[in-house]
Structures are given as structure tokens and as C-alpha cells.
Computed example of a mutant assay.
Amino acid sequence: MADGRDGDLFLCLYRSVITGELRSDLDLDVLVDVVYGPIFHRMLMEHAPLNDAFIEQVLRIALNGALVQE
């Protein structure tokens, strides 16, 4: 588990696993990387704006596969 902001996201995701919102078989370290990877890529490449709409889309895509399917 990472410290700082990565740790905050990890803790949020961990809580979602505990409450049954996210699958229990997830590798949360990988999921943190999946969320932050596109954000850092956009920051470094500066090819498109880094805005709330982009971050929401990244989260929606990343978490879609992590949700418990009922």
C-alpha cells in the first residue's frame, strides 16, 4: 500500500470492499495504479485537458470492473 494520496485512495477502495460495494478479490494496489495511471499520463503528455469530466470518466471505467455484480 502506498502512502499519501495513493494511500487515501487505497483506504477508500478498501472500505468499499469491506462494505461489499467492490469485489473482495481485487488487488487494490493495481486498482490504484489503474486510476492514477491515466491521470499522470495526461499530466505528463499535456495532450488534452485534465479536468473533472476526464477524472470522472476514468473512475467510471476503472470502477465498473471492480463493482460487485448482482
Score class of each variant (00 low, 15 high):
M1P: 07
A2K: 09
D3Y: 01
D3S: 11
D3L: 09
R5C: 07
G7M: 06
D8G: 09
D8K: 14
L9I: 11
C12V: 14
C12Y: 12
C12A: 11
C12N: 09
L13R: 05
L13I: 05
R15D: 06
V17S: 02
I18H: 02
G20W: 08
E21H: 09
E21C: 04
L22G: 01
S24I: 02
S24W: 03
S24T: 12
D25P: 07
D29S: 01
L31R: 06
V32N: 01
D33F: 01
D33I: 00
V34Q: 12
V35H: 03
G37Q: 04
H41C: 08
R42F: 05
R42W: 05
M43N: 07
L44H: 14
M45D: 10
E46Q: 12
H47W: 10
H47V: 15
H47L: 13
A48K: 15
A48E: 14
L50G: 04
N51K: 09
N51L: 05
D52W: 05
A53I: 08
A53Q: 09
F54I: 05
E56W: 04
E56S: 13
E56Y: 11
E56H: 12
Q57C: 10
L59P: 08
R60D: 14
R60Q: 11
R60G: 07
R60S: 11
N64E: 14
A66K: 04
A66E: 01
V68L: 15
E70T: 06
E70H: 10
